[in-house]
Simulated assay, not measured.
Amino acid sequence: MEQKAHFVTVATSDLDEAREFYVTGLGWLPTLDVPGEIIFFQVGHGLMLGLFDARKFAADLNVSGSAATASAPNPSGFTLSHNVDSPAAVDKVMADAATAGATILKTAQPADFGGYHGHFADPNGAVWEVAHNPAWRVEDDGTVVLGTPND
């Protein structure tokens, strides 16, 4: 298996609320929207974010019993990260997310890695980090460089 991923899919307990947040609130454009099932957004070079109705997600995984009919638990143990060019851009994205209905988990502030960041949860609990890291960059070929503050 090659070291790459093309989709990140998150089980979503309320797909309509997720659509409202991302499309109406944040202004994202869906690549594919199947009402009642899944909505896809292209979020990077060759990378899609899928928000999948929790019940359909469970069925797709062949999960039976109460797990297949229950709402998805809030996603935990991971963050989706959005990196921007400046601390001011972090503040703007965090404010826009809050206006769109996000819950601010950590207000934007200086970070241990030498940058500036904050965290919010979308209406279904998916956690986003918004960060400015002056040592982090993406090369033209898509390679991510994780430098140190002294780079």
Rank of each mutant, 00 (worst) to 15 (best):
T24M: 10
V84Q: 01
G125F: 09
D85N: 09
L26K: 01
A54Q: 13
P87S: 09
Q109P: 11
N83P: 03
I39P: 12
Q42K: 12
E129T: 09
A18H: 06
L15I: 10
F21W: 11
N83R: 09
G25C: 06
A11M: 12
F40W: 07
F7P: 04
A68Y: 08
D53V: 06
A108H: 05
V90F: 06
Q3M: 07
N150Q: 15
G101H: 02
M94W: 00
A121G: 08
I39G: 10
A98K: 01
H132Q: 02
V23H: 11
E139D: 12
L15K: 09
T103L: 10
T107L: 07
V10L: 12
A68H: 07
D151C: 11
H6V: 08
F21N: 00
Q42M: 07
D91A: 11
H45G: 11
R137V: 02
A97Q: 01
G147V: 02
D151E: 08
F120R: 00
G147F: 09
P149G: 04
H6C: 09
E20T: 12
H82D: 01
Q3R: 07
T103Q: 13
A68N: 06
V138E: 05
R137A: 00
L61E: 05
A135G: 06
D33H: 15
A59R: 15
G36V: 00
V34E: 12
A68Q: 12
P123D: 01
K56Y: 09
A11G: 13
A67H: 15
M1T: 03
S71G: 15
V90Y: 02
N150D: 14
M94N: 04
R55K: 14
F52M: 11
T103P: 02
D122Y: 05
G65T: 03
D33Q: 14
P123T: 03
I39A: 13
P30F: 12
F21P: 09
T107K: 14
A135D: 03
T79K: 14
F57S: 12
A68P: 03
P134W: 03
F120G: 04
T143V: 11
A108Y: 02
L15W: 07
N133V: 04
G125K: 08
P149V: 01
L32M: 10
H45R: 13
N74D: 11
T99G: 02
A88N: 04
A58S: 15
G27Q: 06
V23Q: 14
V93D: 00
V8N: 12
V10W: 06
P123H: 01
F40N: 02
L146M: 15
T107G: 07
K92G: 07
D53L: 10
A18S: 14
A58W: 15
D33E: 12
R55W: 02
F120Y: 09
P87M: 07
A58F: 14
S86C: 02
G147N: 06
N124C: 14
V23F: 11
A70P: 03
S81C: 07
S13T: 01
V145P: 06
T148Y: 03
I104M: 01
E20W: 07
A58E: 10
G50L: 14
A54G: 15
P73H: 12
T99E: 07
E17L: 15
A70N: 06
H132D: 03
S81Y: 03
A59H: 15
G27V: 08
S86A: 04
V145K: 08
S13K: 14
W136C: 04
V23W: 10
M48F: 13
L29F: 15
